[in-house]
Design a protein around this nucleic acid. Structure first.
Lengths: 258, 258
DNA sequence: ATAAGTATTGCAACATATGCAACGGAGTGA
DNA sequence: TCACTCCGTTGCATATGTTGCAATACTTAT
């Protein structure tokens, strides 16, 4: 469509892997040096590329500029996960008849940002905008499980470990173990830990950086679908979560590997 | 230099604040809609912008694309703080005759990544590549002070609070207070906390996102320059730290405000 | 000195981006 | 139902802006 812009973008991609010289760039594009130069000058002026000082061993050249860092942050803020995920949540809910939630990590708590009721919806404590209980909700556990040590600690620090049912996890050590298990098997479970008669599974959603800032949970009445039944459908749930990840710009696989 | 590329970049900047419609974009550039469209198509094809679904209240349009997130990460990795900071460290060292360090936050510890010896250099425990003592080194304290709660906690968790001198801070509460003070006054001090006869001040360095991942420290023999003397020179030290911040892409002021 | 690698400029030729006008669709209000 | 306005899209003639060439200047290595 726009040749020059396409070339400019190609340059940015080329240069992002490692800094390159003008000649390399021109060769890579198959254009004359002067052509590459004038594009580079424009990009440099606006901070999209920068001249990398050649410090001894590594001859300098052009590298990615700082403006891209700032824009990347903007892009992250602008991602409206809810609107990108909603159609998939609806589809999931309709296919299996379950209630589906989308949870988001906000600061050090997990907040419900979307919810699609299933058939025969039951009154549930969850509500869009409300924080999830960190030690019982599967969405919360799956998100916490995929954070690094410091962030996981911050999330757990807000945990009150109130006992709701016999299966509720009521101490930090047990929860840490459950999170480790969650991460290694790739999904979280809630075995009637908040309400006796309700259980859930939840899967991680990866964003463009590979970070888990969202999670999808599938909720069922134990009487309708026991945990074993939900486990059988994990592959399908995971595929849906993966599609949401892809909508968020994630280009790796459904287990978080690039 | 290259009009089309300049327009493309202008579009990205415009769209990064909030999603815009084709018409808005064309008006902003002062060009015809079709012109804007063709640039947008190219940008969209390569993931630099994306169509934002218009969910009810907010009419959609074009927003920043995911490719920018990925490139932003690349750019961060490619920043070689050391080479950008080194000339400034040299200058600082030569002007004041002090030994100057550059510290970097790596994981949850602070590592010395550069060092310029001053006149009459004294044997010091620091060495490029070695981690700094979190509870005594001014660089470490200034970097820790500017992290958020969770990251600060992670850094402090690796602290052993060994006493080296009478002024060494030996418990967590006192260190937290010292970090709060550091942050509010804008620099950190080491009042002979590791070696009786040596003191330091350290200033934060901000990267393109506004995060403090580096710090600059100025070291002096107490006999040569007591803390009071170093404090008099803070303005100059701060200016140098600010220049490093600017080299790293930071566009705010020297106190971290954008 | 010579050579090969950088980056940069002026200029003529033409490929490419441009503006125009017209079209189709979605939404709004009369 | 209509008219109206906003959205994005397409074909086409024009001329603007980009291209490649050749020459220049600088650094570094042989």
């Amino acid at each position: 469509m726009s040749q020059t812009v396409a070339r400019a973008i190609e340059i940015i991609g080329f240069v992002s892997r490692r800094p390159r010289s003008l000649g390399d760039i021109a060769d890579h594009l198959g254009v004359h040096k002067s052509t590459a130069l004038r594009i580079l000058q424009t990009l440099e002026e606006r901070g999209f590329v920068r001249r990398v000082p050649g410090d001894g061993s590594f001859g300098g050249g052009y590298g990615v500029g700082f403006q891209l860092i700032a824009l990347g942050q903007m892009a992250l803020d602008q991602v409206e996960a809810r609107s990108l995920a909603h159609p998939i949540l609806r589809e999931l809910s309709e296919r299996h008849g379950n209630t589906v939630h989308l949870g988001e990590l906000v600061g050090d708590q997990i907040v419900y940002v979307d919810k699609v009721d299933g058939r025969g919806s039951v009154a549930m404590g969850s509500r869009i905008g409300l924080p999830a209980k960190t030690h019982t909700a599967a969405v919360a556990k799956v998100i916490a499980a995929y954070q690094d040590r410091a962030d996981r600690a911050a999330i757990l620090s807000r945990c009150d470990f109130t006992r709701y049912t016999p299966t509720t996890i009521t101490d930090r050590d047990a929860l840490e173990k459950d999170l480790d298990l969650t991460r290694s098997r790739g999904w979280a479970e809630d075995d009637g830990e908040h309400e006796d008669y309700i259980n859930c599974v939840a899967l991680p959603v990866f964003d463009a950086r590979g970070k888990v800032t969202h999670g999808v949970s599938i909720t069922a009445l134990r009487a309708v679908a026991p945990l074993a039944r939900l486990r059988e459908q994990i592959a399908d749930f995971r595929a849906a979560a993966h599609r949401i990840s892809q909508n968020l710009g994630w280009r790796g696989d459904e287990y978080g590997h690039r």
